[in-house]
Design a protein around this nucleic acid. Structure first.
Length: 796
DNA sequence: ATACCTCGAGTTCG
DNA sequence: CTCGAGGTAT
């Protein structure tokens, strides 16, 4: 075969790829600071391999395709591997339908073996692909004599001294029958728990934490001082053998691993055998499902033809064996281009920047947006429009921008600045003092805020309007059919049908309309029924639905439980609200401020007029009697020099404001109040505004106390004083349901575990909260115990 | 003043 | 789920 010359652009591309790969190798292997994602690296390597295969004239002995890894940094002696350490070909998931299509590379790998060996469904030894550092251990007459990193596959670094400190590596082989010379290959890794422990220690001692467990393993192994390596707990798993002299090994890989186990090497318990393509994919799925639960990080699985005779027959292509392949999980990190930084306006007006990106597959889903949190975060990352960025879907589900690849920044980019005006309503964006967040000052003028407010109002935990999802809430606001939530209750079936027609027209989705006519009517009827059905609510849900800043579910419940009726909530001034538990200055001001707005009061009136009724309005809590008196109000006013003791004293002698005022400074002092406190109070009362506020607070207090029932029937709830935390998935009831039923029994259901927690109910797959419970010595119940408890106390 | 503890708010995709 | 900030106990 004659070698055809390569076009100039191919020559250039090849050179560029080699340079990039070389640079990446250096960063990854020598500096332990990866510059590009593994996915990118693999992509480039494959492109280069393809080009070199197509144009053999371009092949060169110093191409990165001929070696794995880069030259070692000084400090360790070089070790030449007696048998080279292999690298494996990779298989990734492809686009397409059906397993054979999506796992095409695995299917081809398996079929090639079937054809070359003329065997149906060959047996494979299968194992997880650990994300650590590959090493080779040499044993002579059963004694560990040398250990080396893989290096470029031919030559590695002598890290014997460090490896001796790894407990999982046997210094002497157990049992007998081992060959005179035995090379064992495997992976040095750091277990997740050891990684966490190290970082916790590092943070506490102001040392640099490790980026990930792989870096932990690599970095620890190349410490020049073995004492440091010893302090970092490393683990080891064996997965292959190298040179063997003066002895024999079993004839299959799986049997060899078993033999290694007997000689004292850790072999991953996930190692198994599988038959044919179907067996490989089943294993891939099984390990994938277990991935997060494994004690170490893995980036895929490895399939090896089990019998050595077959392996010899298959042989190698360049450096990679044809009898083994690494099947990688979809990458957790990807690079993509940042197209724009958009501003999102939340329900409270919070302006959150988010990145719009070239859509990219990350860990199995297409990611287009990632939050950038706030302006500070953008500045920290120095993200600019046009940048190439690394996105990740880490532990949880939310995509995030990890960092910018500075090298690939196009010319002419500028640092991003927060816009000065809301992109939706053009009102000014303002930043509260000391706060991280910018807010749109538009309030209800802003369609974005109205939209989010409506979505919140209709949401499951608020008014729970069935059928009113985000999409329609958005349309209702955009078409200005609904301006405030109260408008919802005046809408008819026809209005909704009309709205749907307008949306369809606008979106150009008309073809369905004719036959959809009937469907649309049905849908509108459901929606109207859903809205009507939401009219009867608990006071707490209603208060939560209003979307008052700082008022979440919990605070709404507190308000409802203590004040009992909407009238009181909407008319109680801030100083009185502050006596309620968990309500301080900020929250009280927020509530009173909300109802001080005429427009908000009108919306509430309109809702009541539309037929909202409360299923649980009650009298204010009798506990108010103990909490609410003039002394407390004085204390809340934070009067200069006037402490809680003086306040209490004053209230005892002068139960009303009038009595206090007629008494005057001299009487206060006779009552036992210090001179300084008395003059502080005098100065305070001299301000006309302060006095007016106190008067209105006192009036509100009186109204409340008058409404408190005289006969205090305080039935002790069975679970009063209990704080319970639910975690994991419960099988026989939802978490919300469990919460509701426990609260009905008087318990407090909290979201986080602390030493105040009475007990934790752990369902299936309970996570960090369960660990925390163990750590703090908090009792842990299972679902059966919870059910028994509910059954015991619930009536009926 | 300080150290916890808890709640609220925001977040992406299917 | 996680972070920040508000509230309370010390």
């Amino acid at each position: 075969m004659t070698e055809r010359p390569a076009p100039a652009e191919i020559v250039d591309r090849t050179a560029a790829l080699r340079a990039q790969i070389e640079q990446a190798n250096y960063c990854y292997h020598v500096l332990d600071e990866p510059e590009i994602t593994d996915a990118d690296y693999d992509r480039r390597m494959r492109e280069l391999e393809a080009l070199e295969a197509e144009y053999p004239v371009l092949a060169s002995p110093d191409s990165p395709t001929r070696k794995v890894g880069a030259r070692a940094q000084g400090g360790f002696a070089e070790v030449r591997h007696q048998l080279p350490m292999l690298s494996l070909g990779n298989a990734f998931e492809q686009d397409g339908d059906g397993e054979r299509e999506r796992f095409r590379e695995v299917a081809e790998f398996e079929r090639r073996i079937e054809q070359m060996l003329d065997r149906r469904e060959p047996v494979f030894s299968v194992e997880p692909k650990l994300d650590g550092l590959a090493i080779s251990l040499r044993y002579e007459r059963g004694v560990f004599v040398q250990g080396a990193t893989r290096g470029d596959g031919e030559t590695g670094e002598d890290v014997t001294a460090n490896l001796r400190t790894v407990r999982a590596i046997p210094l002497k082989l157990r049992g007998k029958g081992w060959p005179d010379v035995l090379e064992v290959r495997g992976e040095v890794i750091m277990l997740r728990k050891d990684f966490e422990a190290f970082n916790e220690y590092a943070r506490a001692h102001d040392e640099k934490p490790l980026a990930n467990p792989r870096n932990g393993a690599a970095g620890s192994l190349r410490q020049l001082d073995p004492a440091i390596t010893a302090k970092r707990r490393l683990s080891f798993f064996a997965y292959a053998i190298g040179a063997v002299e003066g002895g024999t090994l079993p004839s299959t890989h799986s049997a060899t691993l078993q033999q290694l186990r007997e000689w004292g090497f850790p072999v991953s318990p996930e190692v198994d055998t599988a038959r044919g393509f179907e067996g490989l994919i089943a294993y891939f799925r099984r390990i994938g499902a277990k991935r997060d639960a494994l004690p170490y990080d893995i980036d895929g699985v490895v399939y090896k033809l089990d019998d050595y005779a077959g392996q010899r027959e298959m042989g190698f292509v360049s450096r990679a064996p044809r009898w083994a392949i690494a099947h990688k999980f979809p990458a957790q990190e990807q690079t993509t281009r940042l197209l724009d930084i958009e501003i999102q306006i939340g329900r409270t007006g919070a302006a959150t920047p988010r990145a719009r990106m070239e859509p990219v597959q990350v860990a199995g889903v297409t990611v287009t947006y990632a939050t950038l949190h706030n302006a500070d975060q953008i500045a920290r990352l120095d993200v600019r429009v046009g940048d190439t960025v690394i996105v990740r879907r880490a532990g949880d589900v939310i995509p995030e921008v990890v960092r910018v690849i500075q090298d690939q920044r196009p010319a002419g980019t500028v640092p991003w600045v927060m816009p000065t005006h809301c992109p939706i309503c053009s009102s000014a964006l303002i930043r509260e003092e000391g706060a991280a967040a910018w807010r749109c000052s538009g309030g209800l003028i802003c369609a974005a805020q109205r939209k989010e407010a409506l979505i919140h109002f209709a949401s499951r935990r608020a008014m729970d309007i069935e059928g009113l999802g985000e999409r329609f809430a958005e349309a209702l606001v955009e078409l200005d059919i609904v301006h405030t939530p109260a408008d919802l209750y005046g809408l008819s079936v026809d209005d909704f049908v009309d709205m749907k027609r307008r949306i369809d027209e606008r979106d150009g989705t008309t073809p369905e309309t004719v036959k959809a006519g009937k469907v649309a009517t049905k849908w509108a009827e459901n929606l109207v029924a859903g809205i009507a059905g939401s009219k009867r609510v608990t006071l707490a849900r209603f208060l939560f639905a209003l979307g008052i800043m700082h008022i979440g579910e919990s605070t709404a419940k507190t308000l409802a439980a203590w004040l009992g009726r909407l009238d009181f909530v909407r008319s109680t001034p801030a100083p009185v609200l502050r006596v309620l538990p968990d309500i301080g200055g900020e929250v009280a001001t927020s509530i009173a401020g909300f109802f001080a707005q005429e427009g908000n009061q009108q919306v509430v009136d309109a809702l009541l007029a539309a037929g909202i009724v409360f299923s649980d309005e009650a009298t204010p809590s009798p506990l108010l009697r103990e909490r609410l008196n003039l002394g407390v109000l004085l204390d809340m006013a934070k009067i200069n020099k006037l402490g809680p003791k003086s306040c209490k004293l004053l209230a005892q002698h002068f139960p009303t404001l009038d009595q206090l005022l007629t008494g005057g400074s001299a009487h206060w002092i006779t009552a036992g109040v210090p001179q300084a406190a008395a003059s502080g109070l005098e100065n305070f009362l001299a301000g006309p505004l302060a006095l007016a506020e106190l008067r209105s607070a006192e009036a509100a207090m009186q109204r409340l106390l008058e409404a408190v029932p005289v006969t205090a029937v305080v039935a002790q709830a069975p679970l009063a004083e209990q704080t319970i935390v639910l975690t994991g998935t419960l099988t026989s009831l939802s978490r919300d349901e469990a919460k509701e039923r426990l609260e009905a029994l008087g318990a407090k259901v909290s979201g986080s575990v602390s030493k105040k927690t009475s007990f934790v109910v752990a369902g299936e797959a309970a996570g960090s909260k369960l660990d925390k419970a163990h750590e703090l010595g908090v009792a842990v119940w299972d679902e059966a115990q919870l059910l028994a408890l509910l059954k015991e106390h619930e009536v009926g």
